[in-house]
Computed example of a mutant assay.
Amino acid sequence: MTEPLATEDHYGRAAERVPRKSAPIMPPQNVAGSALILVIAIMTFLSCLTLGAVTLVRDTASTWQTQIAREATIQIKPADGLDMEAALSSAQRIASGFAGVRSASIVGQDATLRLLEPWLGTGFNLEELPVPRLVIVTIDPVAPPDFAALRAALAEAVPQASLDDHRTWVDRLIAMANTTVTIGVSVLILMLSATTLAIVFATRGAMAGNGHIIEVLHFVGAEAGFIARQFRRHFLLTGMKGALAGGLAATIVFVGFSWWSSRNMATPQADQATALFGNFSIGAAGYGGVILVVVLVAALTAATSHLTVVSFLSELDGTQHDG
């Protein structure tokens, strides 16, 4: 707010009132404020990266789980006197007859050779090796077949056949995804806690530098709410600057990884990375989480500074009454 300043000329007459601006309690910029913006930006950046990584792992695990749940594998081990092609056809026919099975396809010799090439090379005879043959069963994830009955039917018709519904892999995958998400959320909470502590110390430091002004304002009748609002406004602006910088940096990282993944889709490195982490796209939910973290950090900065100032003034009043 401004206060008019009255002046007089050399004849003693009142001159025009000149408005005088009151100085803010908190300096608009200082070294401590710039350092706090940098700290908040770093914390926000790391928090957004953690949230994006958790989102990426969760989405990838969900995709893996869906893909695994849609397929089962019938493995037929070679044995003396076993007609492998007849056994494969029998297993395919039995699996196709069960409700909940969409299709059953035999993995041919050429496809089996391609699967073994990375380990055995080329130019070998598949019939001379005790290599199991496979039947891929595509199932309905909404209404899966009765796997126990299917195993019993396969064991009766083809004793060398075994059914793998990948349930063990799905359970391990769910456990791994849940553990990763829990760790990520814990790290995110630690980041926000560290940000809160940094704000508390920065507010205490700012109050120590302006303590005499705060005490004078408080003793002449300025309410605690007025003083706290000044600090809250200052630190809200500081928190918004740091949080926006950190959130923007994290968004650039996510967009860069997504662009790299799309540009190198056909390379072996990108294929391996895509198989593990998807296409490095966190989606709308991930970017919404980044915005939420930015807003949360800015609000946390303002709320923490407000509570710290109110607590300081309460201690000041208690000291005054004791004295």
Rank of each mutant, 00 (worst) to 15 (best):
L46N: 04
L56E: 06
L51G: 08
A69E: 12
Q67R: 15
L51N: 02
F45T: 01
A72H: 05
G12V: 01
L49Q: 01
A32W: 03
L36Q: 00
A53S: 13
F45Y: 03
A32D: 08
F45G: 00
S34P: 03
I25Q: 07
S47D: 05
A35Q: 09
Q67V: 11
Q29W: 12
M43Q: 04
A32L: 10
Y11C: 07
V31D: 13
A14C: 07
R58S: 12
E16A: 10
G52F: 02
P28Y: 08
G33E: 03
G52P: 02
G52S: 07
K77G: 10
P78R: 01
I74Q: 04
A79E: 08
K21Q: 15
V18L: 12
T66S: 12
T73M: 11
P24V: 14
A15H: 06
S62F: 06
P28I: 09
M26A: 15
E71Y: 10
P24W: 07
R20A: 15
L36F: 00
A69N: 10
A23K: 15
I76M: 03
P19C: 09
C48A: 09
T63K: 14
V18P: 03
R13F: 07
M26S: 15
I25D: 07
M43E: 04
M43H: 04
F45W: 03
S22C: 12
L46D: 03
S34V: 11
I42R: 03
R17Y: 11
A72P: 02
S47E: 02
A79L: 02
L49P: 01
N30E: 03
G52D: 01
V18R: 12
P78T: 02
A79Q: 06
T60D: 04
I40C: 02
P19K: 12
R13N: 10
Q67I: 11
T60N: 10
A15C: 09
T66M: 09
A79T: 07
I74F: 03
W64F: 08
Y11I: 02
I76P: 00
I25S: 08
I76T: 04
A14D: 11
I40Q: 01
T63C: 06
R70S: 13
I74V: 14
R17K: 14
A53E: 05
P27S: 12
V39R: 00
D59W: 05
L56H: 08
A69M: 09
T55Q: 13
L36R: 00
Y11G: 09
Y11S: 11
T50Q: 05
T63Y: 06
A53M: 14
P28F: 07
P27R: 09
A23S: 15
L46Q: 06
S47P: 05
Q75S: 13
V39Y: 00
A53V: 15
A35R: 08
L46M: 11
A14R: 09
V31A: 14
